[in-house]
């Protein structure tokens, strides 16, 4: 017997909601990896830090905000992560990027080692500070749902978890703001220019080093915000980033390197595939399904869903 319509719709709605969060995570990595071509192994751990910051500030001084506290906390996590990302780039990452390195391969190798080190430092640092017990954002939203009756009979209904729905809404809003920032503002355009051709951007009078720092900070901030949102339904522990980092890279590549919108849809695709796969294959294989679809899509579209080749042949 196949899945019922009710089951299908329930899974689809969960897939879309999870997909929005994955989309936001991928948008964050897109700034760092897709656009600036910096390999960042610590991106999952930026998310992890965002989770802890969000829970921490909610518990310590946002109690008076009630149900909206987790969302304000996620924004605060974003701001903190922006500063952290900006500083990390200024002090460490910048030594492995730009015109100092002779080839892209050179810089990728050193970025790999450097950010892997940062990732280990953050994971073990948090293990040292807060221990390994999972920590969740306590909110009544996480335990309540809207029941949407399906009209074809009297008993079937789809449940939409309130926390997941509001998370998804916030993720979409933030993503749209970022698309607009990159597409229409002077700053967004200068970031793209600095990423596409640092040498030419310098001739335009763009402070390329600063542009890279800002992009890295933004990427870290988005990971922080996404972490703050996700912790409403997925508990934090120091190694939680590992559950997400692969999804982020897969989403960015799937969407097409260099495209922020593409990264969002890449993340969405992964959320949908991950959830829908549970309808037909065992739960343990849902991440395998992601990579089967990943490979299939790249076979057909090597530049990703939204990737384009703008160079003349």
């Amino acid at each position: 017997m196949g899945p019922t319509v009710e089951h299908l719709l329930q899974t689809l709605s969960t897939g879309i909601l999870v997909g929005c969060l994955y989309g936001l995570l991928c948008v964050g990595l897109a700034f760092i990896f897709g656009i600036m071509r910096v390999i960042n192994f610590a991106q999952g751990d930026f998310m992890m830090l965002g989770m802890y910051i969000a829970v921490g500030v909610t518990l310590s001084f946002l109690g008076f905000l009630g149900a909206s506290a987790p969302f304000v906390a996620a924004l605060i996590a974003g701001i903190v992560m922006f500063l952290l990302g900006y500083l990390l780039h200024l002090l460490l990452i910048s030594r492995t990027t730009g015109m100092r390195m002779s080839t892209e391969l050179d810089s990728h190798q050193s970025q790999l080692i450097l950010t892997l080190g940062v990732a280990l430092f953050l994971q073990n640092g948090m293990l040292f500070l807060v221990g390994s017990a999972p920590l969740a954002q306590i909110s009544s939203l996480s335990y309540s749902a809207w029941q949407i009756p399906l009209l074809y009979d009297d008993v079937s209904a789809v449940f939409i978890n309130k926390a997941r729905f509001l998370d998804a809404l916030a993720a979409v809003l933030i993503s749209v703001c970022l698309f607009a920032l990159m597409r229409y503002t002077r700053m967004g355009k200068s970031l793209r220019a600095a990423a596409e051709d640092p040498e030419a951007a310098l001739y335009m009078g763009i402070d390329v080093d600063k542009a890279h720092r800002i992009a890295f900070g933004l990427g870290a901030a988005i990971a922080g915000i996404a972490g703050g949102l996700i912790v409403l339904y997925y508990p934090a522990q120091p190694y939680v980033g590992l559950d997400f980092i692969i999804i982020m890279y897969a989403g960015v590549v799937l969407g097409g390197m260099g495209s922020v919108e593409g990264a969002f849809w890449g993340g969405m695709t992964i959320g949908l595939v991950q959830q829908l796969a549970t309808l037909v294959i065992p739960l343990q294989l849902q991440n395998a399904a992601i990579f089967v679809v990943f490979v299939l899509i790249l076979l057909v579209r090597p530049n990703g869903l939204f990737g384009r080749s703008v160079e003349r042949a």
């Binding site: 002077r186 355009k189 793209r192 051709d197 001739y203 335009m204 763009i206 260099g258």
Partner: peptide, 26 residues
Amino acid sequence: IAHVPEGRHVFPAMSVQENLEMGAYA
């Protein structure tokens, strides 16, 4: 000082208009 570099170095994934806007960045 405007430096028009060897090999053109236009921003390939930006439109002509956006390239000119970047030129006017300063």
